[in-house]
Nucleic acid binder design. Structure first.
Lengths: 189, 189
DNA sequence: ATAATATTAGAACACTTATTCTATAACTAC
DNA sequence: GTAGTTATAGAATAAGTGTTCTAATATTAT
């Protein structure tokens, strides 16, 4: 039948994701993406349609990545322990690389980026919010937090915290500062 | 001598600032800036050198704007009252427009933006940090916060909070959510 | 009015952009 | 092998980019 592909879609997507993540949507050219992925220009357009399509694919790819990596502690839903584990993980990774969060970066650049991206980022924030809420429910049952605490508000607060850390980590790469903020913020629970 | 200018530098800068603020550095073209400012292309390059120079000028212009508008309550340094006033102001403005913070946006896009921008944003965050610290010192003296609280950590925490709010406000424009987060976050002090 | 100076309008330039096209090469089922 | 299919390499395209240049225009001191 046909000639087989010489590339791995997953691998191509991974490389494209890092490039977009580092430089943003506008500042990344198809030229660069072709070079960095090693993929042929024609195959690129065959697979993803156009730059926007490729970008959306990297966003989805990143969603899966986040879900696996950072969602894990929260999905265990073991109360405050899970939340602390989550922020330890996030804080560590943020400081280590200094790219921030691909979602946050894209959300910020979003005016120049398709509406579809906005929607996906929105779904992500809601997912994160709900995961926090579940952990807090458990924490309440365990008596780790007072029974009269408003879980919705606290979840929004934790989403906000994550975003703040994301931004700070891109500028101030001192691990200590990030850790300090996490410490202070979690005292609040 | 010479023919007088038909434009007001301040006014030009203001319009350029809003354009960059809305769309980001990369997504804004000189073509658009020329149209939006109504300024002649040649005069543009005469005044600011090039796109990067114009962008830096808008960043400086924004710094002054922020200093006047949002710095005011913090400079009064009346303890917790000032901090609450600050966040009420910030929360309100963030929700009203939905552009986020020009500094934050630029910091995030920064990989594709000159290093000079990075430095300015850095200065801004430090300034903000120090203003918070001063208010907290006063609060401590007034007995509004416990004497053993670490002011440096708390200040970093408040900077982080501001950034988080900034990001959230660009996506979730519900005023209530923003207000909820502020409420929860300030309980921590 | 004239000379000197600066601003203006917008054409022109060189380069980059995303995207499409074309011809060639590689593979498989028959 | 051959036919059919698909990936490949890279040239070609058309529009957009930041920037420079040129000529005309407006103003003021003399």
């Amino acid at each position: 039948m046909a000639r087989p592909r010489e590339f791995d879609r997953k691998e191509v997507l991974k490389k494209a994701t890092f490039t977009f993540w580092n430089k943003g949507y506008e500042a990344t050219s198809m030229e660069e993406l072709v070079t960095v992925t090693g993929l042929n220009r024609g195959s690129m357009y065959n697979l993803f349609g156009n730059k926007e399509g490729l970008f959306l694919a990297t966003i989805d790819n990143y969603f899966d990545f986040i879900h696996e990596t950072f969602g894990a502690p929260l999905r265990k839903a073991e109360g405050l322990k899970s939340i602390k584990e989550y922020f330890a993980l996030v804080g560590g990774k943020l400081c280590k690389y200094g790219r921030g969060c691909f979602f946050t970066n894209s959300a910020i650049e979003t005016k120049s980026v398709p509406e579809a991206v906005n929607q996906r980022v929105h779904v992500y924030f809601r997912t994160q919010h709900d995961l926090f809420a579940k952990c807090l429910e458990v924490a309440k049952k365990k008596g780790e937090i007072p029974a009269d605490r408003d879980i919705q508000k606290l979840s929004s607060y934790l989403v906000c915290l994550t975003q703040g850390l994301t931004v700070m980590s891109k500028l101030n790469k001192q691990t200590k500062t990030i850790q300090d903020v996490i410490d202070v913020a979690l005292e609040q629970l």
